[in-house]
Amino acid sequence: MKSRTGFFVLAAILLLAFAVVVFEGVQLMATGRPAGVGIGICAIVIPGIGVWFLWHTVQFGRHSEALARELEAEGGLPVDELVRTPGGRIDRASADAVFARRQAEAEAAPDDWRVWFRLAIAYADAGDTPRARKTMQHAIRLHPTPH
């Protein structure tokens, strides 16, 4: 719960900063000077892109949490079977072994969102965040009901 609260606090601060930048951009555009208008347009477009990315990040989180809740209700969440170092880090060989098993499951059932969800967790445990996110997005797309 702490991380969720922290995320929303930071998102609110980011949106406030975007609002300030947009306000300043409008002020620059009102000068009528070509440089002011150009910078003002950029000051409106860039926060717009930021809001778009923020929205998609929130949606991704909501959808992946919904899949996790459904999988938990079914008893299908992956069990943490990873070996850890005394410092708490995941042992690389252990993560690789679990990953190989999850990848084989995904290849055997390519249309099952559950195996792709578990594969995404394996990617995350292996430290490959970009592939974990892409795989989770695939699991979300495979899920039969919209979230």
Rank of each mutant, 00 (worst) to 15 (best):
R118W: 05
G76T: 05
D111I: 13
I121W: 06
I41A: 11
G88T: 07
G25Y: 02
W55P: 04
V22Y: 00
A109G: 08
A120S: 15
W116I: 01
V20C: 10
W55F: 04
V98C: 03
I41C: 01
F23P: 00
G127S: 07
L14K: 01
R62M: 14
V22R: 11
T57C: 06
H147M: 14
E65N: 14
L10Y: 10
Q59G: 14
R102L: 04
L14G: 04
D111V: 12
R69P: 06
T129N: 13
D111C: 07
H143W: 13
E107D: 12
T57Y: 07
D125H: 09
Q103T: 02
I44Y: 01
D80G: 03
L142Y: 11
L67W: 14
G36Q: 05
P78M: 05
I41K: 11
G25H: 00
L28Y: 00
H63C: 12
R84G: 05
A30T: 13
V51R: 13
V58C: 09
D80I: 07
H63I: 03
I49W: 08
F23C: 06
P86D: 14
R4H: 05
Q103F: 12
H56G: 10
G48D: 14
H56C: 06
L14N: 03
R33W: 04
D125G: 02
H143K: 12
G76N: 12
V115G: 03
R69W: 07
L15F: 03
A124T: 07
E81M: 08
D128R: 09
P78V: 08
L77P: 02
V26F: 06
R102D: 01
P47V: 10
V21Y: 00
D96G: 05
D112N: 11
T135Q: 03
R133L: 02
V51F: 09
R84C: 06
V37F: 00
T129A: 13
A11G: 05
V26S: 07
Q103E: 03
M29T: 06
D125I: 01
R89V: 01
A35L: 15
R84Q: 08
D91P: 11
V79F: 09
G6C: 08
V37T: 09
D96P: 02
L10W: 09
K2T: 08
H147Q: 14
A66W: 10
E74N: 15
M29H: 04
D128C: 02
